[in-house]
Write a protein that binds this DNA or RNA. Structure first.
Lengths: 172, 172
DNA sequence: ATTCTTGCAAAGCCTTTGCAACTGC
DNA sequence: GCAGTTGCAAAGGCTTTGCAAGAAT
């Protein structure tokens, strides 16, 4: 069947070729649980919907959008399924302090974020030094490393331009 | 009066010499507000208490501990004061996903954290490369940088030892 | 048929807020 | 005495959960 390459991707970073679709990967996860869990319509809709886009979203946004597109989703089930998807390694949870957002984990390269505090944009970036840095620090402290969160806060180029322009005008 | 060096410090990283005590710095902040704010008994107690220790704490812990030591504190005021302390640059807020903790910002060096997900320990580390790395990424994206969060998750040396030992025993 | 999932509404957790009494300046 | 602070209890977000009805295998 060949490899599956995740969704239409408007983002800058490279997708990673993976041998299973997100749906397949999720089914496998469900089947592998101590007591097999079931793959339901609502879960299938969510996986398809989430992996058809490539953006950062929070639970409430997802609920609104999916309802807007005619899907039948309930708040409780969305929260339950998002937790499973994180657990299954399909999604990653990013804590922004104000909001908690999700992004694709499966089929997408490791990366970190610049978060604009004005317009809420998330710019993904890749820096090969970070992993080496983490490894080095962890070995120094005998720390067994399982993951990391690295978010740089500030203003994206557009918002910063707006701000400095406004400031100049204020001075006139 | 000479310089003030912040509290008894059980931590590894160097304190930074600062010319004002946390209390003085906070008063200055309060006075500098658009409409001058007041320095009250409860706020004074909190600042003294917080800067007499050097640990990571959340709001509820602080309330319990201070009550335990006979201070009169109310939940609402603690939350209000913590916000002011963050705003004043005395404390930094760290979002751990599960918990939000605070640590000294004023009088203490910039650093990042290893967070043990088992015992909740926070190990502070200093890496001189991180700032350069942030600057370089930001300039690449025209991003105006105001702060960052970098938390490495995993198991501290002790918890990891416990885990691997247990595993070995399980195999017997 | 059995066992898991769903959906609702209720509860939980952490944090903020409205308001009357109080207090710092 | 004025303006800001406190404390209570209530409300606010977001997320989880108990339970009866429904769906997947």
């Amino acid at each position: 069947m060949g490899n599956y390459c995740v969704g239409s991707n408007v983002n800058v970073l490279p997708s990673v070729e993976v041998s299973q679709s997100p749906e397949e990967k999720f089914r496998e996860y469900l089947a592998s649980r101590p007591r097999a869990q079931r793959y339901t319509t609502q879960q299938r809709d969510m996986v398809k919907y989430i992996f058809s886009k490539h953006n950062h979203f929070d639970a409430e946004e997802l609920i609104d959008e999916m309802k807007g597109e005619g899907f039948q989703v309930s708040r409780a089930t969305v929260y339950r399924t998002l937790n499973k998807l994180v657990d299954a390694g399909l999604l990653r949870r990013i804590n922004l302090g104000e909001r908690t957002v999700f992004e694709h984990d499966y089929g997408y390269s490791q990366h970190d974020h610049l978060h604009c505090e004005k317009c809420d944009a998330m710019i993904e970036f890749l820096d090969p030094q970070i992993e080496a840095l983490i490894r080095s620090v962890c070995s120094q402290y005998g720390f067994y490393f399982t993951g990391h969160t690295f978010v740089v806060r500030g203003l994206c180029a557009a918002c910063n331009r707006a701000r400095t322009t406004k400031r100049r005008l204020d001075l006139v």
